[in-house]
Design a protein around this nucleic acid. Structure first.
Lengths: 142, 142
DNA sequence: TATTGACCTCAAGTTAACTTGAAGTGGCAC
DNA sequence: GTGCCACTTCAAGTTAACTTGAGGTCAATA
């Protein structure tokens, strides 16, 4: 039982079988071979799917994720690119923290309307500036 | 000149005129009125667009953003929802930080392939667990 | 051995968030 | 007053990331 068929992989990864086939189509994951018609996956597919889930949570497209974790059999990533991705993520983290602060302030602010509160507007400006920086750094802007 | 027509708003907000019309269609922004055929926007539209940009950067859909910042003329938000959104964002921030750490470790790790490195795999497990928690908390999972 | 249910392929449909295009209008500088 | 050009509407097209459906296969269980 070293191999998983698509149903087992779906159950363990929380990704539907149809989506797994789609991921294989576009080269995001690879099956080891077939048992009759049925795809057989190795356990490293589970690790790859974890990475994919993580990348999606971080807001990367499947294409970008594909670039990060390597297309075919080679799950090895160029290290300088990894560092750049980490930097971009950190920038994004800072922007999101700013947004969180902004929302939290809005929740506690006594001003009748948040748009009238000077603190809110200042936080907003800061957050937006960070967003711009993140977008430039990232080059992910469509 | 207290009003902006769509071209001016587009220039100042960095959002295309077509997109602004689309946003008005779906009720994300509102124009003050018309000058002839032409929409006139007030400066609060700029603030709203900042909020929208921020929400998008945070990974929210336009529908979710619409819920956060209020649909029509009322840009006021229910405070408990704001706090919940901030909490969800903080969780996401933690997940992204974990991902960043994971990537950074991968960049420095001497293992021939990251998938073979135990530290990488441990970080990955942690990051994924956080991702799951975030998704449950968020209820944004489609 | 017969059936069942999990798999298969391939095509088409779906949703969000826009973008593009065609055809028309009207404010304003000359 | 006329011509340009930024606007207008409306319909259709686009992209990513799937999902759904129809019709077929086959490995294992009864």
């Amino acid at each position: 039982m070293r191999f998983l068929d698509i149903g087992a992989l779906a159950a363990r990864s929380g990704t539907s079988a149809a989506t797994l086939r789609y991921y294989e189509d576009i080269g995001l994951i690879t099956s080891i071979g077939r048992h009759g018609l049925r795809r057989q996956f190795g356990s490293e597919a589970l690790v790859r799917l974890s990475l994919i889930a993580l990348g999606k949570a971080a807001g990367f497209s499947l294409t970008e994720i594909s670039g990060m974790i390597g297309r075919d059999g080679t799950p090895d990533l160029p290290r300088d690119i990894l560092r750049a991705q980490a930097d971009a993520l950190d920038t994004k983290v800072r922007a999101l923290s700013a947004l969180s602060q902004t929302l939290r302030h809005a929740a506690d602010c006594p001003a009748p309307t948040h748009l009238e509160c000077p603190t809110f507007r200042r936080l907003l400006r800061v957050a937006v500036r960070r967003g711009h920086r993140a977008r430039r750094t990232n080059s992910t802007s469509n």
